Amino acid sequence: MARRQMVRPGGRSTRVQQAVHDAVRELEAETGRDTLTVPLIAQRAGVTPSTIYRRWGDLKELLSDVAVERLRPDTAPADHGDLSADLTAWAEQFLDEMSSPTGRAYIRDALLGDPDGTNAGQCSAYAAEQIDTIISRASSRGDHPPEVETVLDGVVAPLMYRILFRPEGLNTPYAQGLVTRLLAADGMAAD
């Protein structure tokens, strides 16, 4: 079932979304994910179950929406003054966050309740925005960095594949090596 975005005057839609997201997070922390139900979430959020069904369709789509929101980066990537250092630090942080048990659970939820690919696209956009910030900084310093898509293909895609399907041997040196190979292939010397 496709989600319907209802926009109501006065920000009610935003308040409902926030209340429901908060309820999911609180209940998950208190009782665990396996006990979550739409009626329980609705009661905690102060809305009717039909409000949740109308907006999200089902529990999987709601959990997917919450996961996508939780996967949104809180801050811009750190500026270390150098493309290689910036991209390496970002890749290490991305790996650390996404490969954690919590990160994997969010990824799983984001994809499971995403029948039309919207949430996957949003998660990809988060990574692209972060990379674009790094690349823009490098360009402003006079560097000639790779394109965003090149970084997504050379760093993010292999990390996500390994996180989801082959986590053994997935570590910081692996992420660092992806960045080093990407920059070497693109003609940028990686420190």
Rank of each mutant, 00 (worst) to 15 (best):
G187A: 07
S136V: 14
V24D: 06
A185S: 13
R44H: 13
S84E: 03
T14C: 00
L182M: 10
R108E: 13
P73D: 01
A120F: 14
R70W: 01
A29C: 09
P77E: 00
W56Q: 01
V148Y: 09
R166N: 14
G103W: 04
T118D: 11
T35Q: 13
R15Q: 15
A105Y: 03
T150C: 11
A89V: 00
G11L: 02
V155D: 09
R166E: 14
G154L: 05
I131W: 08
A2F: 09
S99F: 05
E149Q: 15
A89K: 01
H21V: 10
P101Y: 08
V16D: 12
R3F: 00
K60V: 00
R141T: 12
L36E: 06
I134P: 06
A85M: 01
Q130K: 10
N171S: 15
A78Q: 08
R137L: 08
A190D: 12
E92S: 08
A76W: 04
R54I: 01
S64Q: 02
R44S: 08
L159C: 08
T133V: 14
A78V: 14
R4T: 14
A175D: 11
A2M: 12
A175I: 13
V20M: 04
D74W: 00
T118N: 10
R15F: 08
P173R: 10
A42P: 05
I131K: 03
T88N: 00
L170T: 10
L83T: 05
V47L: 07
L27K: 10
D22I: 00
Y53P: 02
V151D: 09
E30V: 12
L170M: 11
T88M: 00
E61V: 03
N119H: 15
A78G: 01
N119K: 15
D186P: 01
A189Y: 06
N119Q: 15
V66R: 02
P101M: 02
Q93E: 06
R15G: 03
Y106S: 02
V38G: 01
R12A: 13
A19M: 09
D143H: 14
Y106C: 05
G187P: 12
V179M: 04
M1C: 01
M1F: 03
R12M: 08
L182W: 09
P101W: 03
T37P: 06
S13Q: 14
R8M: 14
